[in-house]
Design a protein around this nucleic acid. Structure first.
Lengths: 339, 339
DNA sequence: TTCATCAGCGCAAACCTTTGCGGTAACCTT
DNA sequence: AAGGTTACCGCAAAGGTTTGCGCTGATGAA
């Protein structure tokens, strides 16, 4: 291999054999116009020289970069990294790469990520909305130009954009009823911002669960937080200091659940004897904490794979109607919610 | 915006204004050859039409894709996702994107990831070796062609390739001495595969720590595992069933430490009264488990940022001598190791 | 008036690939 | 032997950008 030039081009091969570039190209693509002898000779040299087509040139020509942009609120939360892992697996099978950008839960960063990813000519985007996102104009351009777009978990525009979510309402209902069955009556819920679909849906499930158990809804027991550790800690502390404090809490996601657990312990209360706790989180974390956390486990890896599948459906069939895939969650009962 | 064509090219602008493509290009680059009036007119139109240079074309021309390949053993471990986050931050500042591939701790996948990333014409690679990797021939091509390459954490060829690591020997020494100071005498170490630098270095630190405390090294107390949950569980179980079982264990990384914790509990032993435990892990996980885990915390985010900085040094100064950056760890003492 | 100068712009090559079309032999047919 | 096939290959354009060089018209000087 020549120094300073790590990639061989068709031109290099053509020059070395003494034919034109087009002949080399056709030979490598087994075009019938090229004689067998010539084809073999060219393919042999190409293999020796380790030729691989330049994806930039192909991208220019075919207008297809084989890259997907992925925007997540953050990279370090297991929920997201696991989903990304799922996306990556399907993408790899299809020969696609993913470009990851994190919005850090900021609308501004989400907007600029969309722009930047489009600048790099990704073929489309797979997105989980940031916590701040309430306006969706930055996705208009994609929709208008029919650029593939898929939302997961935190979604919007479900009429126009395919999405994959879990059955949040059902999950929250299951939690509430589980608490009831285990003898808890003052069931609190630490929710997220109102504009997020996951928060709304889980709130509905919570209320529906209460009703189905014949429990009255006490507005004091529904608190909202910004889904950060700090916000959740504060929310938990608030709940625990109520005149009639709750005997059960469920948190809207991992971060909230763990912060709540720490805060309950800090208040010197025992879990689950004095305050039961259930979270929305994943298998691994739930088992490592003490007491082991009862939780709704998301099929995170599957969410990622499904999002990628929807994406490729869109690529292969641009005019198909947007569908929403709803995955089921599982309530895994552990120590934190059973006296 | 026209339907089906989401990106405006120089040609489009040129046609609309009625000048040549080169004039448009120069105007946008403020070339002095173009009159002020024309420059302004072109720039205005470009802004209206939302023109952005096509990175594929630029990539072809400049042979620079502004993309970095990153290969990690997995995506979901907090250690790696946090490092990736650090890399991403620095990359974003420089206007670079990162392409992530995970080796799943497999040499085969690592090799194919290197190949595939090179095919996509990334400008270089930032890599943490897979657990299986003992031969390094797949990096030869990069070194030979002077393609930027940086290793972190699990490294090799440190003479030829810049790298960022933590002071593993010092960290393991600190742990050993910490155990000793707190009254533990049978100190066990669950190591990883021999060929990994991190495993070797920590073993040396362990031995050195024992010696400096005047403790004899008991080979029974040094067990190796493959750093999976299963391997660590088995190793721990083995240690706990020794005739003279250890009263303190330290695990080589997150996975091992948590598996060990679960296994100790499963054996009905109390932490730290009967068996003390220390891990190599991160802040978040250490505090969420019970008892809170004493651990060496890696400056993960900083490792990522430093790796990216080394990478850009390499880009800007290709012939500089490869350096190794050694970051310090911190021993954070929590309940799991203090009687 | 005439030649040199210069501002301002276009041509074309380069990066790499694919592909419709045109071209050139050698062969076959009648 | 002349015209028609056919096998095999090259030209050139397309995709988008930058840039050295050449070209034009006008202005300045002599």
């Amino acid at each position: 291999m020549e120094k300073g030039k790590s990639h061989v081009s068709l031109k290099d091969l053509a020059r070395e054999i003494g034919v034109s570039i087009s002949t080399v190209s056709r030979a490598l693509n087994n075009h019938p116009d090229i004689s067998l002898a010539m084809t073999l000779k060219i393919q042999k040299l190409a293999a020796e020289r380790n030729y691989t087509p330049n994806p930039l040139a192909m991208g220019l020509l075919k207008q297809a970069t084989r890259m997907i942009g992925v925007i997540v609120p953050d990279l370090v939360t297991h929920f997201y990294s696991s989903i990304i892992s799922g996306i990556e697996q399907v993408a790899e099978e299809k020969g696609y790469y993913i470009l990851i950008a994190s919005s850090s839960e900021s609308l501004q960063k989400e907007i600029s990520s969309v722009e930047n990813l489009l600048k790099t000519r990704v073929e489309g985007l797979i997105v989980c909305l940031s916590q701040e996102t309430q306006s969706y104009a930055h996705f208009d351009r994609l929709i208008r130009n029919n650029i593939p777009l898929v939302f997961f978990d935190r979604v919007c525009r479900t009429g126009e954009v395919p999405s994959v979510v879990v059955d949040n309402m059902d999950a929250a209902r299951k939690i509430t009823r589980h608490f009831y069955k285990n003898g808890f009556r003052r069931i609190a819920y630490i929710a997220g911002p109102d504009h997020l679909n996951i928060s709304q849906e889980r709130t509905r499930g919570y209320l529906s669960g209460l009703e189905s158990c014949g429990l009255d809804f006490d507005p004091e027991l529904l608190v909202k937080c910004n889904m950060s550790s700090e916000g959740a800690t504060e929310a938990t502390s608030h709940l625990l200091q109520l005149p009639k404090r709750p005997d059960a809490i469920f948190g809207i996601n991992d971060t909230v659940a763990f912060a709540a657990m720490k805060e309950i312990k800090r208040h010197g209360l025992r879990i689950p004897e004095e305050v039961a706790l259930v979270g929305f989180t994943d298998e691994f974390h739930s088992t490592v904490v003490d007491p082991a956390l009862t939780s709704i486990t998301h099929p995170t890896f599957e969410i990622g794979k499904e999002a990628a599948r929807l994406f490729f459906n869109r690529i292969e069939n641009p005019d198909a109607k947007p569908v929403q895939v709803v995955l089921n969650t599982k309530l895994v009962v552990r120590k934190s919610s059973v006296k």
